[in-house]
Design a protein around this nucleic acid. Sequence first.
RNA 1: GCCCGGGUGGUGAAACUGGUAGACACGCAGGACUUAAAAUCCUGUGGCCAGAAAUGGCUGUGCGGGUUCAAGUCCCGCCCCGGGUACCA
Length: 995
Amino acid sequence: MAEYSKEEIRKIEDKWREKWVNQQVYKTSEDPSKPKYYVLDMFPYPSGAGLHVGHPLGYIASDIVARFKRNKGFNVLHPMGFDAFGLPAEQYAMEHGIHPALSTRQNIDTFKRQLNKIGFCYDWSREVQTCDPAYYRWTQWIFLQIFDSWFNRQKEKAERISTLINIFEKEGNSRHPFPNANSTLPNSSQTRFTPEQWKSYKEKEQQEILMHYRLAYLAYTDVNWCEALGTVLANDEVINGVSYRGGFPVVRKQMRQWSLRITEYAERLLKGLEEIDFSDSMKEVQRNWIGKSVGAKITFKVKSEQSGADSLTVFTTRPDTIFGVDFMVVAPEHELVKQITARAQAIEVEKYLKYVESRSEIERMAEVKKITGCFTGAYAINPFNKREIPIWISEYVLIGYGTGAIMGVPCGDERDHKFAKHFTIPVTNIIGQYYDGSEANPTYDAVLENSGFLNGMTMKDAIPVVVDKLVELGIGQRQVNYKMRDAGWSRQRYWGEPFPVVYRDDMPYAMDEKDLPLELPPSNNFKPTGTGEGPLANLKDWIHLKNGETRDSNTMPTHAGAAWYFLRYMDPHNPTSFAGKGKLDYWGQVDVYIGGSEHAVAHLLYSRLWVKILRDLGYLNFDEPFKKLINQGKITGDSRFVYRATVTWRTEGAETNPESDPHTPALFISDGIRQKLQQSDALQNRITEKLKLISKTYIEKGPATHGELRLNPDSWTPENLTPLHVDINIVNGLELDIEAFRKWQPQFLTAEFVTEEDGRYLCGSAIEKMSKSKYNVVNPDDIIEKYGADTLRLYEMFLGPLEQSKPWNTNGIDGVYKFLRRFWNLFHDGKGNWTISSAEPTRVELKILHKTLKKVEQDIGNFSFNTSVSEFMICANELTALKCNKRAVLEPLVIALSPFAPHVCEELWELLGHPESILNASFVSFDEQYLKENSFEYPISINGKVRTMMNFALDMPKEDIEKIVLASEIVQKWSEGKPPKKVIIVPGKIVNVVL
RNA sequence: GCCCGGGUGGUGAAACUGGUAGACACGCAGGACUUAAAAUCCUGUGGCCAGAAAUGGCUGUGCGGGUUCAAGUCCCGCCCCGGGUACCA
């Protein structure tokens, strides 16, 4: 027996960590007799830096849910694994010469060791690693299923490619045109073929046609090419024209790449959002990414000198504004440009196209407000009033969206208005006073004017009228557009899944299933070839097969392995399928998925896509992978800075930077002084004096080689302060431990300080991302060393709402630590002796128990863990005050607390005489009946209406009951028409009446 | 610019569908124990005012209005902070 001390905590935690592993208490198997519950964490990328205190936040939350659900009688699946393919390991390999496979394995070991210290109840027997051939065998297999599928738009689902071939043989592609409007038949500009034609095509031509339909397809696409990384990046990996990793420039380039035809699923991905429980912002981000817009396609007749093209098709969401069209704009890359440009404008247009071509992606993005453009000399004819509308070219119209052409309505669209003003195109006002002549108004409410047959209608109402008319005239139709593009799926990288295909006659063919996995060949050459081929192209023997076939030199993006890992957990060792049908059906959807919001688009969309495809192909019976998503907030670091006075130094007259020499004595200015510096000449002089002094001692002490060097104190001005990150471990609050700082890094050994008046050196602070280079990382191991894992868990939950981002600080950690000791002491006397009693609990004690159980159960249900922790603290305080040590009260509480603090609760549970792990105990649900029987409800009516029901506890003090009786009389009179001035009725405490 | 969040004590934060604002915890102050310190425990703690005291009054949830018997919570306008996103027609 012992007190709850540091030593005891360590003993308890070590003991239980070992027991849990030995007894395999976390091992889960399917059990049809119990309801299932699947709690999932976003699996981590095992970076070299290990875990910091931010990582476990979500894991602790999911662990609490998992343990709680298990105590509530659910069969809980709570696995963990590693997203182990990816760029950083490869980058690291190139810099340090350590193979990604090795560094990844080491990093995973570190992660697992750290995770286990925190006491998570993961079933490690289900661990998956995406870089394991036994795993990526199935990633490749699923890829092949996608490759072997097409999207039947009539049935709105994926089907096998063989069904498509059947259709082609019977009816050609008349009912199933190419999904992509730009696709054409091989060596032709036609888009339709008959069954006879289909049969006449050669193998390669048929394959080319099928490629236009496959859900995983190979095509020349505009890709984001990053020269510095030597690879293609997905749209979401490019931020402001530079790569999200490294910040290198990215350019558009045509390359033959694998893509997933996610656009076919745009509508289903959008609809699916309605049935899943994601946060509003998360759904919004996905909706924006999909970017659905409903409108119409309108074809205008074109009048030009050339006879080539006679029509121009635009996409608009506002067909109601058709009478306000004052110009047309086509994208510079639009094929019509060549065909309609007038001779008189040819030079201008040529010049403009050159200019556009010269603009890099970054420039275009940086200067979106710059208005450029050029008139083609051709006109479109408004079908309703026959007006001639000039056709312009401008880079603000994108070739990739809609039809690559728009109708310009300056009175209603901001950009169109700016364009018109810039090129002095007259503006037609169709919305009367809604348009003030200086700014466009995108209203839907205006009553239309100058709009022919639409006059007098509101814009909202006019939309369907116009569209009907357009359809009737055969010059337009309803059209839905999506911003989302197909997902680029090739990476010129080594450390990823190879594509399980072989090329024959330049066309890819699926590998035989029984030859999977196609293992990543060993290699130490990770450099991209620079020609657009992946590093695997360096391995000639691997790329070129003996029979003349070749392999793909690219690998899949990390999203591939992550797009289905939650399915593999259900049946991780299955050698014959990605997961057995029975197990997939038993575990089904993930009930709760916890992870960061940074995966809002990529990972979550791809996972949703893969599940939808697998479902369409009959492998799954659910359409959405994640029922509920919780985004835990980020824990940010709280950095500390010291401010170094920078001076130049002279060496025989020449000046150099002092920081280049580690022996330069450094002078650091306390933050309080720094803030007053600008206003105070006295302080400035003090610093200059100090610098002069230092410069003297420096010369005396300085190394011989620098004998000529002399600091130049006069070169210092108040602006010359350089902030340096300082290790947060040698700062207490804001106060720097000066001695520790001198020892921290050799160049600070002789550092001097300008301190506050009380002699302390105060640091500056800033909230930033936790990172090694900022010296603000807090390692969970250190917290566990100091307080134990249970305290860490409780404290991370106590810190604030799960979804909220917050800076890490340990200010309140003593509070939860003290709580654990108080809880421990309910079972022990002050000296550590076990003092549990089997006496009957009193009504008050039972009330405390059930109140706590109720709140905790509700709070966990709402993922409101911070208030749960508070509830336990209140409970412990109340029971301590009552000196309650009764088994009937404490036993249910240990179970309730065990998800939060599993180690200490297991220990107490064992001491209470239970040989089985507390994980298998049953959470005692609060007794609603008991709470009801011990309180009564009193209706409060105001002006005759019952406004509220108040709950009163029976054990409240006598005088309070008297007040209630008084109040009840007053309320009675009130309803008779004599309202009191003021009545305050408070459940259980105070009643105050002012007559 | 647009779309989501969010502004509550010295600090982290509670407050269910409008019904005691500040639970719980940190910090701080005072006290107990101690030769002393640490640890622990107890008491107090939004601000202002009155009172010897118990206590009482006023005020208070970013700012300005409104609805209501009652507003941190609902409505209108504005300011600030965080996140996402952007020539998407």
